[in-house]
Design a protein around this nucleic acid. Structure first.
Lengths: 407, 407
DNA sequence: TGGAGTTTGTTGTCTGGATCGACCAGTCCG
DNA sequence: CGGACTGGTCGATCCAGACAACAAACTCCA
């Protein structure tokens, strides 16, 4: 019943309270608001226990109870509504892209309070770090002074080591072994929990928590960009792998002897379906690849070349579906735009090459959060400690953020 | 801290007790025996709490305490040794192969008490079921009459639906949608918990619990037989997928336009590295494929063709390593025999095609349980309810097995 | 050989958290 | 307006784990 099983450990009562408190908060965070009666049913605990938990979260200034709400249908006394406190804790979500950076201040419930964007002026880590830092300052500027910042979540297009958040390799930023979290913290001049992860992993997380894949335990978010990566969630848990590098499905062997890939091999899947391959298929010059999204949006009917790419996307996905048996594939990045053009080819490619049992249950979907999946995933990641142990997470949160990160 | 998180549920004291009881038993099961002092450290609970848990398990006749053991080194009072009760509960493990069946009575700690084997006389499900039933009777015959049978675990070479254990497809047995669990129960004439799973999944489980991969949280057991499948464990949890069909890596697209595969496509990985491809590489007639193991054992040096297969095994594994980032790959089935012949080719194939980050941490190993991996995995699976909730698992166990399943 | 030091088992007490039951507070419906 | 129903509140209770004090068993060293 605990979200992150620590193998072999026993449980004491203290842990029970922590867990129940976090679980209740997670419920409210997911639904935005909830009645105490719903929480009682959803968590399988006693009425009075829920009352105690809610009271504790209220005293932590995280939630508040509003006595009655508009339309209580059905007989019986209407239940108290528990909603998130307006000046409750928040996180800062950062999405580092190749050509731009997005930073947002996100409250519980996934509410984006403020947002700031900048075009990259260079890809050196310290440059990116200082740009991010000033965006963070901007975004934090109008936060209520009594609201606590729980942490910063950063999405990076590359391989991120799970244990310490080190960016091992981000080919499109030309980073290798960059401790980007420390760089941002240093530029901000504060100590606050920072977590980093791969962008596709966070896309999967966000779509799982508040997107198309709510309630779906096994899903794969495929991010089709210059590189092709995947975030995999199985049994409701993010598949990290030993180092945190899982999901590099762009380097599935796809076409022996095919085009050379930056990884040193030939014929990797992403050399056939990645942004450069798509651009080439529609004769778009390499320097226009960042604009691929708008260019694709301009097409009303697919070309023969695009249809061929659709088929190859389907074939590649089929391998992944056979291996992981997901319930849903969410097509992110350029694959979203392609889906509306060559949906039939993608689906035919998938059905041709999957085994029948895993095929029966899988569906292809577009991200419900649109271009914000990754950003929202970064926010969800930063909130995570709050749902594991609200009390200690709020203990390591910082107050009075505005003055402490001032320019 | 609970092994199987039920998302969103709260925890009450009853659940705590169940969990701690199960966790303690799992510890003793893993190590065979353990001192109370070790358990105290390992579970992070208080001395007196452990004492209480041990007492309860003793009263359930599952473990027993022996006052002193041979060599208590170090200062201080020697700790009481907790060991498994000799006539404690057991399970029956069944491995259904294409050409033979193995059944074993396995006690806690993974001790094989009895074992029985039969050659298949036919692959019809009812035939196999009745053969299995008589092997079960044989194996249960000398069980202490006061020992309880917790359940039956069955390994099947095919796709097994997780939710109800239905065998969706077992190509080499020519089964489709066979409820093999019910067939065996009907042939035995008893009601007892039965669980079924794919053989590769159980191989992974066994190697993780008591094989080379003890302590390894992310591993893949690759079963190289007529088909090629994998059991994947990530973060210490078995990767089942939405339906339970995850791990069908034999159907990774490997060589477009290659040989036809029984799945309807061409160039699946298993058409290049499966048993038939290996047999063809050493010019072994198709009807001799079941003997492939001994034939391979006869080689002292690899042929050029076998080396090519080794390389292709490595290339296929590389795709999987990139996608899942395991810490260890365990080579089961015919791949074990091949490994000693063409180890260099396999390893070169892997290192050529993996990204550097996932490659750094992965290692290739042979199964420590040899040919018994799958059988032991079936036993572990059947024991699992006992570690989630010992009291209720013993409640649904059956006593006096011998008389109740008498032929 | 015996005492100091160390580690562990045992026992009774304490504490914290969840449950339970009784009662009360709202709302719906006839 | 009163019954039926649902949900909040409060005090009593239960239960599991923690704690502390003491006893037991061992090592080591003088």
């Amino acid at each position: 019943m605990s979200p992150q099983p620590r193998t072999g450990l026993g449980t004491n009562q203290e842990a029970v309270r922590r867990h129940n408190l976090g679980t209740l908060l997670r419920h409210v965070h997911r639904r935005g608001q909830s009645t105490r009666a719903d929480l009682t049913r959803g968590m399988g605990l006693n009425r009075s226990t829920i009352a105690g938990l809610v009271t504790e979260l209220e005293s932590l200034c995280v939630v508040e109870s509003t006595d009655t709400v508009g339309s209580p249908r059905g007989a019986g006394r209407p239940s108290v509504v528990v909603r998130l406190a307006p000046s409750g804790p928040y996180v800062v979500a950062v999405e580092v892209g190749v050509d731009r950076m997005v930073v947002a201040r996100v409250g519980l419930g996934g509410v984006v309070h403020q947002r700031a964007t900048a075009i990259s002026s260079g890809t050196e880590a310290w440059q990116v770090g200082s740009t991010v830092a000033s965006l963070v300052r901007e975004v934090v500027d109008q936060a209520p002074s009594d609201a606590a910042m729980v942490g910063i979540g950063i999405a990076v297009p590359g391989l991120v080591r799970r244990s310490d958040g080190l960016v091992r390799l981000a080919p499109n930023l030309e980073w290798a072994d960059v401790s980007f979290g420390s760089i941002v913290l240093a530029a901000l001049g504060v100590e606050v929990p920072v977590s980093l992860a791969n962008d596709a992993d966070l896309g999967a997380l966000a779509e799982h928590e508040r997107g198309v894949a709510v309630g779906v335990g096994d899903l794969i978010y495929v991010s089709g960009n210059v590189g092709v990566g995947a975030g995999i969630i199985t049994g409701g848990i993010s598949l990290a792998g030993a180092g945190g590098y899982a999901g590099e499905i762009g380097h599935l062997q796809f076409k022996p002897g095919g085009r050379p890939c930056h990884c040193g091999n030939r014929g990797c899947w992403e050399t056939e379906v990645g942004a450069h391959a798509i651009a080439q298929a529609i004769s778009l010059p390499t320097d226009q690849v960042p604009r691929l999204d708008e260019v694709l949006a301009g097409y009303s009917r697919p070309t023969r070349e695009l249809r061929a790419i659709g088929t190859m996307i389907g074939h590649g996905l089929a391998s992944v579906i056979n291996a992981v048996n997901p319930e849903m594939i969410v097509l992110g990045g350029y694959f979203s735009a392609l889906h509306s053009l060559v949906r039939d080819e993608i689906e035919a490619g998938v059905s041709d090459r999957t085994l029948s049992s895993p095929f029966e249950t899988v569906s292809l979907e577009l991200p419900a959060l649109g271009a914000d999946s990754v950003l929202m995933g970064a926010a969800e990641m930063a909130f995570e400690p709050l749902f594991t142990d609200p009390v200690s997470a709020l203990g390591s949160a910082i107050q009075d953020v505005r003055t402490r990160v001032a320019g």
